[in-house]
């Protein structure tokens, strides 16, 4: 009797974990594929199809340490643009990125795409997190 309950509970837990993970991976897939489209239309001309950037003019998105450390700044960066010195991949950039006019959900999708492409692997950056990050923009 006791054993059955334990097995039953265990099974329930397994199902819960699986379905939970499924929800997560579905959410990720949605964000990532929409993000890929947004990247192509709004970012790719500058940062390149493979996130390679453009020599000393536009920084690459392949510096996974930079992306990881600045993940919470990326939504603001997209929303407001960026200007001034920046060290990416051991190179100094001093270009100017224009503000990209996107809704928070689109920013979340684009950031999820960047954060999981070009050698980055940071999981979903969902819209709630983006809204929190945007709230803190300077």
């Amino acid at each position: 009797m006791k054993l059955k309950v334990v097995i039953g509970l265990g099974l329930l837990l397994v199902i819960a974990v699986i379905s939970c993970r499924d929800d997560k991976s579905i959410e990720f897939a949605r964000y990532y594929s929409s993000g890929s489209m947004i990247y192509q239309t709004h970012c790719q001309n500058c940062h390149g199809a493979h996130g390679e950037g453009l020599n000393g003019l536009i920084p690459p998105l392949t510096d996974s340490i930079f992306i990881k450390e600045n993940l919470h700044q990326l939504p603001c960066l997209v929303k407001n643009g960026l200007k001034g010195e920046l060290k990416v991949s051991n190179k100094i950039f001093e270009g100017q990125m224009p503000a990209v006019d996107l809704a928070p959900i689109e920013i979340a999708q684009a950031v999820t795409y960047v954060a999981n492409s070009f050698g980055n692997k940071l999981g979903t950056v969902n819209v709630d997190r983006v809204n929190t990050d945007l709230f803190k923009c300077q």
Partner: peptide, 15 residues
């Protein structure tokens, strides 16, 4: 030089 739209793509191709 300050062109934000198609110039980076053009320069990438011209390279």
């Amino acid at each position: 030089t300050s062109c934000p739209s198609i110039c980076p793509v053009m320069q990438r191709n011209m390279l």
